[in-house]
Write a protein that binds this DNA or RNA. Structure first.
Length: 566
RNA sequence: GGACCCGUAGCCUAGUCUGGAUAGGGCAACUGCCUUCUAAGCAGUAGGUCGGCGGUUCGAAUCCGCCCGGGUCCGCCA
């Protein structure tokens, strides 16, 4: 496609005096509708240059331009000149390219930049809820998209394994609030104990103080029994999280813990104070960021205990050191927008050169219809709960379709479909927009959903399974409207991948995969493949193969499993 | 007081950065299509003051200003 743009802009430049070839290439558009051709040149901007009406300029161009052989015709349309590629020309190029590149179709070559991503952030001793699901789905997907675009990615996860929530949970266990721990699902059980304990502590000043004391005791590390309980239960959470990482196809290069940041964080805060970068105020160490419009940022409490910010300073230093990265991306909720501005400014003032390329990838919350989730009050929907409901529904559906399948096969298939539905619903949305959780929408398997993508892919694979040797096709025979439409969507896939990487967002990719699927399903419905005459059959088999390859590449970037049958 | 986000059909949303052709989809509703490569699908009907008012422009959902509505954050939580 790029070649056609260059060819055409060269031809236009010869007729459009005073405007460079590059400028013209930048002006070329893909028309909103196939009726308007394959490429369009709008003349509105030239109107100011030539002091003539756009339509008049367009007419002049149509009379003058010598159309390259790759193009069939050009047409005048108001202020636009529309250009039409030779029938089948695009099919030949796009299908050929995909079948050649295979898993690399849409990818960029290696780039020098190294990027560390940080996401998930589930705290131990607490429930893993649907808010974390949005985070991990997004974090893994953008990591994959950036990787596909040639960057070296290090995935990290920063987990709160100390702090008030842990104290409450441990206290709850010691008070036997949750009874004996179960054999299976200890990680989930901990979340429940935390919620119960938290409810008891809330509003009770005596207990609140007890929790603060417990936190200090744990931080001191001298109480052997408490330490042992903490370590044991922490592992329960981490083991449970490990299973979730598997579901999301995430392999973290490094798990960071708040507990490793406390001491170093204190040192950094004190060092900044000594250097005069930070200052003392009401006995706490603060950064005065007022002149940057960022207020005051506290980096160490007046009782010398570390804050979230204290630990984040240590974390940043550790990441920069361990990975020697060029860019650092924090995938964290939008409620921390201001906090991250303060943090990044502080890192900058502290002299970390990496601060300039540290970025907060912000996304809005997942909320319930009745309002914000609060795991303290048990007002959450957990990942476990969502998955169980999803599976129940999907298993029923799969069993109904495939009577002969073994239970194992049914389960594996259903898990893949459930994951697709969950992930896609989290990714197919602008990062700035809240997701109001709703069971009916969450459990949808039709329309713009993950299973729709899987289904389109499975249909394509089903055709390909039925042929032994497809032979080489002449892809310039792909001249039917449905074929050209599909080809055109497949051809845009690489630029969509690139766009998604530049914007650090999965949404454009989601949208494009929906479009590719829709184009394929229309094609599938209207154009016979296996029953077509030999030469058309072969050309169409190539197109189906190309579609399934591009879909697979794209779905992998979203972390959505592909299925051969469903 | 300061900073930020959202507002597009009954519901959910894309498009806004970088202004351009009749504002794309999906759900729900209604009509058709399974003896033809998987109907988790396809084709079609109906549904829109792009929150409001001004401004910039040949042209505004998109840029600027003001206003309305909803939400978030800002000194010792994470």
């Amino acid at each position: 496609m790029a070649d056609y743009r260059k060819l055409l802009s060269g031809a236009i430049a010869k007729s459009a005096k005073g405007v460079s070839k590059g400028e013209i290439e930048g002006m070329l558009e893909t028309p909103p509708n196939p009726e308007f051709g394959d490429l369009a040149f709008p003349c509105f901007k030239l109107a100011a240059v030539y002091k003539k009406a756009p339509a008049e300029i367009a007419e002049g161009l149509v009379n003058e331009i010598k159309l390259p052989g790759e193009f069939e015709k050009m047409e005048l349309a108001g202020g636009y000149v529309n250009f039409y590629l030779n029938k089948g020309g695009l099919g030949k190029e796009v299908v050929g390219e995909i079948l050649k590149q295979k898993g690399n179709y849409g990818a960029w070559g290696k780039r020098k930049e190294k990027i560390v991503t940080e996401f998930c952030h589930a705290n131990t001793h607490k429930a893993f809820h649907i808010g974390h699901v949005r985070n991990i789905a997004l974090g893994e997907s953008v990591s994959r998209i950036l990787e596909f675009n040639g960057y070296k990615i290090y995935r990290t996860n920063y987990q709160g394994d100390v702090g008030p929530h842990v104290s409450k949970c441990l206290w709850g266990i010691m008070e036997n609030l949750g009874g004996k721990e179960p054999k299976d699902g200890k990680g989930i059980w901990l979340g429940g104990v935390y919620a119960t304990a938290s409810g008891k502590v809330k509003g009770n000043e005596e207990l609140e103080q007890e929790m603060r004391d417990l936190t200090k005791k744990l931080f001191g590390g001298k109480d052997k029994k408490l330490q042992a309980l903490w370590k044991k239960t922490r592992k329960w959470s981490l083991d449970y999280f490990g299973k979730i990482y598997k579901d999301f196809g995430v392999k973290f290069d490094r798990l960071y813990f708040e507990s490793e940041m406390e001491k170093r964080g204190q040192d950094i805060a004190n060092k900044l104070l000594k250097k005069g970068v930070a200052e003392k105020s009401e006995n706490a160490i603060i950064m005065d960021l007022k002149k940057y419009g960022l207020g005051v940022f506290i980096i160490l409490k007046s009782d010398n205990m570390p804050l979230y910010s204290t630990k984040d300073l240590a974390l940043a230093e550790m990441k920069f050191k361990e990975f020697k990265v060029d860019r650092s991306l924090h995938i964290v909720g939008a409620e921390q927008n201001f906090y991250f501005k303060q943090l990044i400014k502080t890192l900058d003032l502290a002299g970390f050169k990496e601060a300039k390329k540290t970025k907060h990838i912000s996304y809005a919350l997942v909320v319930l219809e009745e309002g914000k989730m609060a795991s303290r009050e048990g007002k959450v929907i957990t990942y476990n709960e969502l998955m169980e409901n999803m599976m129940e529904q999907v298993v029923k559906e799969v069993k109904g379709r495939h009577r002969g399948w073994s239970d194992k096969r049914v389960n594996e298939n259903s898990k893949a479909i459930s994951l697709a539905a969950i992930k896609f619903s989290m990714l197919n949305r602008d990062n700035n927009k809240e997701i109001v959780f709703n069971w009916k929408r969450a459990l949808a398997l039709e329309g713009e959903t993950g299973p729709y993508l899987q289904y389109s892919y499975a249909r394509a694979r089903s055709i390909l399974r039925k042929v032994k040797n497809s032979g080489k096709g002449d892809y310039s025979l792909l001249t039917e409207d449905m074929e050209k439409n599909l080809v055109s969507h497949l051809g845009k896939f690489p630029s969509v991948c690139n766009y998604s990487a530049e914007h650090v967002s999965s949404l454009p990719l989601c949208q494009h995969l929906l479009q590719m699927s829709a184009a394929f399903n229309s094609f599938y419905h209207e154009i016979p493949v296996l029953k077509a005459e030999k030469e058309f059959r072969n050309a169409r088999l190539g197109l189906v193969k190309a579609f399934s390859q591009a879909m697979k590449n794209g779905m992998e970037l979203l972390g959505i499993p592909v299925l051969e049958e469903m």
